[in-house]
């Protein structure tokens, strides 16, 4: 069940109007700009992709549509898959980078109000 209490609604639906595998609209429920804008950017980075855009059809409906159109070298589903793979890798890299910087401990550290030892 999702946040709105809708059961059995598919997370992802592929809406394609033609037999052309190069274009498809991916309809994703319970997602918003957080996911869609980053995904749009990453899919657009793929040189085999000719167009990628997203829209939220209605503000009270938790749904985003992502449109992908590719050249003949790839398919829309492949482009979507690559976009997701790349974003997962990017997140992983930022996580590793962030953890490394945390471990370095060369930032200004001030326990402030949490410094209970000095306060007591």
């Amino acid at each position: 069940m999702n946040i709105d209490g809708n059961e059995n609604e598919a997370k992802l639906k592929i809406l394609s109007s033609s037999s052309d595998e190069g274009c498809a609209t991916f309809s994703i429920s319970e997602e918003d700009h957080t996911l869609a804008n980053a995904l749009r950017y990453m899919i657009m980075k793929n040189p085999k992709v000719e167009y990628c855009g997203y829209s939220i059809p209605h503000p009270t409906e938790a749904k985003v549509n992502i449109r992908v159109q590719t050249s003949e070298e790839t398919t829309a589903v492949e482009a979507m898959n690559k976009g997701l793979d790349d974003l997962i890798e990017l997140c992983e890299h930022i996580l590793v980078e962030y953890n490394e910087k945390l471990d370095l401990k060369n930032y200004k550290y001030d326990e402030g109000v949490f410094d209970t030892e000095n306060k007591a």
Binding site: H33, L90, I94, Y107, F114
Partner: peptide, 29 residues
């Protein structure tokens, strides 16, 4: 690749910068 610069850190406060990522990703975070 993306780089993080940690500037200030307290248990309830943080200041950092993130470089070499797109606005969409930074805003997503």
């Amino acid at each position: 690749g993306p780089t993080v610069q940690l500037k200030e850190l307290e248990s309830d406060h943080i200041k950092f910068s993130l470089s070499n990522v797109d606005l969409s990703v930074a805003n997503g975070i």
